[in-house]
C-alpha cells in the first residue's frame, strides 16, 4: 500500500510551502501531488516553482504528479491547464473534463494520467471509458463508500490503480464565489489574498457554536477531519492501492508516519488513531467510508 500526499488545498506563504515540501523529501510518502487546484488567484508558487519542487522530490525518490485546477473559468485558466498538460515530464491528475480532453486528444495523446476525485466517476463503465483514454489511476470521489468502491472495482474491465481520500478535511464543494473574500466584504478580484492568513482555512460554526464547515476561498470543506486511520484493516482488505493524505496546517509529517507505521504493522490502527487525535485541527469523522453521512464517526470494533 502506497501513501500519497494530496495537493495542498490551502494557500500558504511561499517560504512555508517550500519548507513543507522540503520536509516531504524525507517523509514516509510515496507519491506527491503538486500544484494549485483551488484558486487561480493564488500565486505564491508559479508553475515553474512547482516544477522545481517536483524535481527535488523526484530526486528524493518520490513519484510526483501535477494536479490540475478543479474549476476552470477563464481563458487564462485554460492556458495554465495547457502548460500543465504539456509539461512533458510529470504525470498529470485531471480534475475537470477540460483536462481530460487536453490529455486524451490531439496528435500525441498522453497515455498515462490520473483521473482525479472531482471527475465524478462513480461506475465501472465510466471508469473503463477513461481507462481507454489513458487513465491508469482513479482517485475515488470522497463521498463514495467502501461498498461502492468495491462494486466499482469488481466491475472493471481494465487494470486500474485505486486511490482513496484517507485523511484530511473533506473537500466538499467548489463555487465561483470566494467565501473567504465574502467574509471580509471583499470581492474575489480584489481579495487581498486573505487565505494566506489561515493555514487550515476559516472555521464555520452553526448558531449554537458547533463546528460544521471550513471556508477555504472558493472551496468549502468539512470542519471535521475525515480519517481512515482506524479503518486500515478494512481499507487494506478492499485492495485499495494508494491512500491520499491531505496536507494540514501542522503535523502532516507525523500523520504520514502514523499511517506508515500502522500499514507496516508496527502499531495497531486503533492506537494510531488515538495518537493522531491531538494532531488534528478538529474532531475526526469517517462516515463516507461506512456509507453514512460524512460527518459521522464510526469507531473501529
Amino acid at each position: 500500500m502506497k501513501i500519497a500526499l494530496g495537493p495542498l488545498l490551502y494557500y500558504w506563504p511561499r517560504q512555508s510551502t517550500l519548507a513543507f515540501y522540503a520536509d516531504m523529501a524525507d517523509a514516509p510518502v510515496d507519491v506527491v501531488y503538486l500544484g494549485e487546484t483551488v484558486c487561480s488567484r493564488r500565486h505564491e508558487l508559479r508553475l515553474s516553482d512547482w516544477l522545481e519542487v517536483a524535481e527535488i522530490l523526484t530526486a528524493a525518490g518520490k513519484e510526483v504528479v501535477l494536479s490540475s485546477q478543479v474549476l476552470v473559468e477563464s481563458e487564462s485558466d485554460l492556458k495554465s491547464l495547457r502548460r500543465i498538460v504539456a509539461n512533458g515530464h510529470f504525470r498529470v491528475e485531471a480534475n475537470d473534463m477540460g483536462a481530460v480532453h487536453l490529455l486524451s486528444s490531439g496528435d500525441t495523446p498522453v497515455r498515462d494520467w490520473i483521473a482525479g476525485p472531482t471527475l465524478n466517476i462513480f461506475n465501472p463503465t465510466t471508469l473503463d471509458l477513461f481507462a481507454g483514454l489513458g487513465a491508469t489511476r482513479w482517485v475515488a470521489p470522497p463521498e463514495m463508500s467502501r461498498e461502492q468502491i468495491r462494486a466499482l472495482r469488481d466491475g472493471l474491465g481494465h487494470h486500474m490503480e485505486v486511490e482513496i481520500f484517507a485523511h484530511g478535511r473533506l473537500p466538499l464543494a467548489y463555487s465561483a464565489r470566494c467565501f473567504t473574500a465574502r467574509h471580509y466584504n471583499l470581492q474575489k478580484d480584489t481579495c487581498e489574498f486573505r487565505c494566506l492568513e489561515f493555514a487550515d482555512g476559516i472555521p464555520l460554526k452553526t448558531r449554537e457554536g458547533a463546528p460544521f464547515l471550513t471556508l477555504n476561498g472558493i472551496q468549502t470543506q468539512s470542519a471535521r477531519v475525515h480519517t481512515l486511520l482506524g479503518d486500515l484493516p478494512a481499507v487494506c482488505a478492499e485492495g485499495v492501492d494508494i491512500l491520499r493524505i491531505s496536507p494540514q496546517g501542522a503535523h502532516t509529517p507525523e500523520i504520514l508516519q502514523l499511517f506508515r507505521q500502522a500499514l507496516d504493522g508496527l502499531i495497531p490502527p486503533a492506537d494510531a488513531l488515538h495518537e493522531a487525535l491531538p494532531l488534528l485541527p478538529a474532531e475526526p469523522c469517517n462516515g463516507f467510508w461506512h456509507g453514512r453521512p460524512g460527518v459521522e464517526l464510526r469507531l473501529p470494533n
Binding site: V70, L71, T118, N120, P141, P142, E143, L170, L172, A173, Y174, S175, A176, R177, L213, T220, S222, G287, F288, G291, R292, P293, G294, V295
Partner: peptide
C-alpha cells in the same frame, strides 16, 4: 451557489447527495 456536480455538502450532512 456551488458548482453543480461539485457539491457534496448534503452528502456530508445527511448521506444523500
Amino acid at each position: 451557489v456551488m458548482v453543480e456536480g461539485r457539491c457534496a455538502l448534503s452528502a456530508y450532512a445527511t448521506g444523500e447527495s
